[in-house]
């Protein structure tokens, strides 16, 4: 009788010690697994983001003692014509790049998916290729396109009989900003072709079949069926592109650095040059512009969400 009672007794003791060991082991593991990334994120991302608010109230060249100047930077910002000029350039980019990129991508994706051309799989791979290239490479490539004396564009124009006398597309304030649109679109379309194609694949063919029976053209099918059905993903794409054209400045930094005479200066580049540029540095004022940009970006995000039709469409 005594034997079966005593036998199980050691077991709970083992189990608790095993459990305790497992628990400390788990704690240690979680600490080591989550800790480094979280610490890095708090230190290198969140902390600077919070600090950027404080910096906006300083007058600081980054080297000497910072001075607290209250709202001065913000008052200066609203009177700074360069800020408004840069923002107007951002506005132009924001109104053109997203619409053109999404439009071209939707069209290419639709043709690639629905036409069943033999060459479609090859194009899908090729179209994405510019997306893996470095911005520096894309920028230099387009510098070669736009060069006045030896550029591809002028060379092509000459072939068709137009001689514009070594016109420098990036060197003229009338064309420089517009010349920045093609690199941005060229470099971005492939990504959206892929995600739109993926979304279009999920549309059941039966939806098209009845439309085909009704004699709907490809154009009608595209506008009435395809686009409304993948509308959520189109909206996400639009949002990315709008935010990108508001905050992006690498292409301008490499190609023109804002020139000629400010014709391609955008708000991100203006801020960058105030902080890291060749001339005098002003971290405080640059941070105030950063705050303005932050507000604009969050605003744009909310606006895009609000403006585009939000209802889920199902057939």
């Amino acid at each position: 009788m005594a034997k079966p009672e005593t036998a199980p007794r050691p077991l709970p003791a083992i189990r608790t010690s095993w459990l305790r060991k497992e628990k400390t082991q788990k704690r240690l593991f979680v600490l080591l697994a989550v800790g480094p990334c979280l610490f890095g994120y708090l230190l290198f991302t969140l902390y600077p983001n919070i600090l950027s608010v404080y910096y906006a109230f300083l007058n600081w060249d980054g080297l000497t003692e910072p001075q607290f100047v209250g709202l001065d930077n913000f008052l200066r910002l609203f009177q700074d014509p360069f800020v408004w000029r840069a923002l107007s350039h951002n506005l132009l980019l924001m109104l053109t790049i997203p619409a053109l990129t999404v439009g071209i991508s939707l069209f290419l994706a639709y043709v690639l998916i629905n036409k069943g051309y033999r060459e479609a799989p090859f194009y899908k791979v090729l179209f994405f290729f510019p997306n893996v290239l470095a911005t520096v490479v894309i920028a230099l490539l387009w510098a070669f396109v736009y060069d006045g004396s030896y550029g591809m564009l002028n060379g092509l124009l000459k072939l068709v009989g137009i001689d514009n006398g070594e016109f420098y597309w990036l060197g003229d304030s009338r064309t420089a900003l517009w010349a920045l649109l093609p690199p941005a679109i060229w470099g971005g379309v492939g990504f959206y072709v892929i995600i739109f194609m993926n979304a279009m694949k999920a549309i059941p063919p039966s939806l098209y079949e009845s439309a085909i029976l009704d004699g709907a053209s490809h154009m009608t099918r595209f506008v009435r069926i395809t686009v409304p059905l993948i509308q959520p993903i189109v909206r996400v794409g639009m949002l990315f592109l709008v935010l990108g054209s508001l905050k992006g400045f690498e292409m301008m930094l490499i190609l023109t650095n804002g020139g000629p005479s400010g014709a391609t200066d955008v708000i991100g580049l203006y801020m960058f040059n105030l902080a890291f540029g060749a001339e005098m540095h002003n971290y405080g004022y640059a941070s105030a512009i950063g705050m303005l940009l932050f507000v604009i970006l969050v605003g744009a995000k909310l606006l895009v969400d609000r403006l585009s039709p939000n209802e889920q469409i199902e057939y």
Partner: peptide, 24 residues
């Protein structure tokens, strides 16, 4: 809590943090 702190990064455009990050 950690997940929601991480998700916060989706709202941060990053560009305004360039300068403080450099100073850090």
């Amino acid at each position: 809590l950690i997940w929601s702190v991480i998700m916060l990064s989706l709202f941060l455009p990053g560009i305004n943090a360039l300068i403080p990050q450099y100073v850090l």
